[in-house]
């Protein structure tokens, strides 16, 4: 068990255990070694890419705003704010380069890819609402989510997804004044 997990476990038992110097010292050593050895051991490009993504968005938005109009009234906030954001990102990257932690891993215990199937399923659900119909898409989403997360009782999967999915979609289709694509329920 690593030090972070130990601390979480300890917090769940009694918060005062954090005053235990040996545990905190262990954790700090862990974090320090993680920071120092990162380039060789655990390279995570995600954090770096997020910073680059935010910088790219900022730069693109600034250029887009300038292309619409270079008048001060249009750029009054956007120009200085963009410069500040880009400067902070540059500063963060320089600091990381100096520390040798440019590609450091996130402090979160769980890797991003473990959540990816859930995110993918949610994306598929939203994108299929119009083609499958809100009712069928919702029932399938709930059922697949249950299967994905380890539910094996077929009657629980079928029962909950049908009752909850159709119930919610029926409620909203009756309440909302907008047309909703439906396949199973009456329009």
């Amino acid at each position: 068990m690593n030090s972070c997990a130990k601390i979480i476990k300890c917090l769940n038992s009694t918060p005062t255990c954090l005053t235990d110097p040996s545990m905190m010292a262990g954790h700090l050593t862990d974090v320090a070694s993680r920071e120092l050895n990162m380039p060789a051991q655990k390279r995570d490009y995600g954090d770096f890419l997020v910073l680059i993504g935010l910088a790219s968005f900022t730069l693109w938005y600034l250029l887009d705003a300038i292309s619409v109009s270079a008048k001060p009234q249009n750029l009054l906030l956007i120009l200085p704010l963009s410069i500040i954001v880009l400067t902070i990102i540059a500063l963060e990257l320089v600091l990381r380069l100096k520390r040798g932690t440019l590609f450091r891993a996130s402090l979160e215990e769980e890797p991003l890819y473990r959540t990816l199937p859930v995110v993918g399923l949610f994306a598929a659900y939203v994108l299929s609402l119009e083609t499958l119909g809100f009712d069928l898409a919702t029932v399938l989403f709930v059922a697949l989510f249950l299967i994905l997360k380890g539910e094996r009782k077929w009657f629980a999967i079928a029962g909950y997804s049908v009752v909850f999915g159709l119930g919610v979609v029926f409620f909203f289709s009756q309440m909302l004044p907008y047309p909703m694509t439906l396949l199973l329920l009456p329009n």
């Binding site: 609402l129 919610v168 909203f172």
Partner: peptide, 29 residues
């Protein structure tokens, strides 16, 4: 596993109710 999809579905439906088209759910995503 029961709580999460239920709340996600409510969020998607609520966002559709706000915009009246797929802009809401797509923005949530």
């Amino acid at each position: 596993r029961y709580l999460i999809p239920s709340v996600l579905v409510l969020a998607v439906m609520g966002s559709f109710g706000l915009t009246g088209n797929m802009t809401g759910p797509a923005t949530v995503l």
